[in-house]
């Protein structure tokens, strides 16, 4: 019985270590990806995995992206930030997504297979995102 209790305590200790390590890793990831990331100057739009268009963040535009499945995502660039204003997808996750402007940030519409990513024109068109 005493052994069992000790075993349980060890398990709970391991739980806490595991959770702490996960949270620490995530916080480091968030700091690296979101806080210390510089602003980008360009928005890249892909549709169904293929490049759809490239737009500058410095110009205010409204672009209707007609998707492969006949849907629609309206991309708006305003004040140097890009967001999806309206969309035909059922969940509306892309519309709810806050505006993106930092290098590598993206808005993804899974149902319509549309990905909007902020890039920096100077360092090539494919930033190192997962590093």
């Amino acid at each position: 019985m005493g052994d069992n209790k000790k075993n349980n305590r060890n398990k709970i200790r391991n739980d806490i270590i595991f959770v702490a390590v996960l949270l620490f890793a995530a916080v480091v990831g968030i700091l690296y990806l979101f806080v210390f990331r510089e602003s980008g100057n360009t928005v890249k739009v892909t549709r169904g995995g293929e490049l759809y268009g490239i737009y500058s963040l410095s110009e205010d535009i409204t672009e209707d992206i007609h998707t492969v499945n006949g849907g629609l995502n309206r991309l708006v660039i305003k004040d140097g930030k890009a967001f999806v204003d309206s969309a035909s997808c059922p969940d509306g996750i892309c519309v709810a997504h806050p505006p993106v402007f930092r290098n590598g940030e993206s808005i993804v519409c899974l149902p319509n297979k549309v990905v909007v990513t902020v890039i920096s024109e100077n360092d090539g068109d494919s930033p190192d995102i997962i590093a």
């Binding site: 995995g49 993804v108 990513t117």
Partner: peptide, 9 residues
């Protein structure tokens, strides 16, 4: 499915 790595974010 989306053939994109941006989601890693």
């Amino acid at each position: 499915l989306l053939e994109t790595v941006e989601l890693g974010y």
